[in-house]
């Protein structure tokens, strides 16, 4: 479980998160939605200790962020951010291989290699394994990074807008893989999404943020509505229910 308690964060005096408290139970896909600047990425970065805590606390399982060791945390949660530019010339296999670093610390074993190959296969990268990252398309590179996070084999996977560079087929494939991870392996995926329809289709729980506060939280069918869009995004869009699932008409 990720337990977030009274979390606040400021950048240059401007509050980005205001006293957020959340419990994210183990297992399932949790989608975070909200307008630009709502604090979603900051929240994710704080959980992943990429930013130092200012006030409040975050506990992942029994690991207190800010106190637990780097390696313990690296084996518990993995994060993938939006910015995927890499100056290094690495092959896809190299990159995915670094996902195993928290376990082998520089000495990969047979098990690590198997997991790397499995990750390449799962994300449809087997043929691209020896290609250099800078020769890939945006979507392929995105998949390589997701595969790296997957290879890290953590209970918690935090993804910041991973669908940005993907077409509809790749987006659906990725979301399905993530959902399978939660169903078959009991993993927890926390994902920032812009497209509410993807959130409604694949998430078990949606958390809506606005101006640094949680304004809605619950199962997609219960919270995605005309009024949510009006409140959170200030836009008038109709929500219809198709096959028992809410769909935003854009």
């Amino acid at each position: 479980m990720i337990d977030i308690h009274n979390l606040s964060y400021q950048i240059a005096g401007q509050p980005v998160l205001r006293d957020v408290s959340l419990q994210l139970a183990k297992g399932g896909v949790v989608a975070m939605i909200g307008p630009n600047g709502a604090g979603k990425s900051t929240l994710l970065s704080l959980i992943a200790r990429l930013l130092p805590l200012q006030s409040g606390s975050i506990v992942v399982d029994d690991l207190q962020i800010g106190e637990a060791t780097d390696i313990e945390l690296a084996r518990t949660l993995a994060i993938l951010r939006q910015d995927l530019t890499v100056a290094s010339r690495l092959t896809v296999r190299d990159l995915v291989g670094f996902g195993r670093y928290p376990y082998h610390r520089g000495r990969p074993g047979a098990e690590d290699r198997e997991l790397i190959e499995a990750a390449l296969k799962l994300f449809d990268l087997a043929d691209l394994g020896d290609r250099q990252l800078d020769t890939l398309s945006g979507g392929q590179r995105q998949r390589a990074f997701v595969a790296m996070a997957y290879a890290q084999d953590t209970d918690y996977l935090l993804l910041d807008e991973p669908l940005n560079n993907l077409d509809i087929a790749a987006s659906r494939a990725l979301m399905e893989v993530l959902r399978d991870l939660t169903r078959q392996r009991g993993r927890t995926v926390v994902i920032v999404l812009h497209d509410i329809n993807y959130a409604a289709a694949y998430a078990d729980r949606i958390i809506a943020l606005k101006a640094g506060e949680v304004v809605a939280d619950g199962a997609p069918s219960t919270i995605v509505s005309d009024s949510l869009l009006q409140d959170v995004f200030q836009t008038r869009a109709k929500v219809k229910t198709v096959d028992g699932r809410p769909i935003v008409l854009v």
């Binding site: 780097d70 670093y101 928290p102």
Partner: peptide, 17 residues
């Protein structure tokens, strides 16, 4: 390996412990 990972940036490095 540590230096290779550093080359991927601070966020990735921290993420990998």
């Amino acid at each position: 390996d540590q230096f290779s990972i550093i080359g991927l940036g601070e966020a990735v490095s921290i993420n990998l412990g």
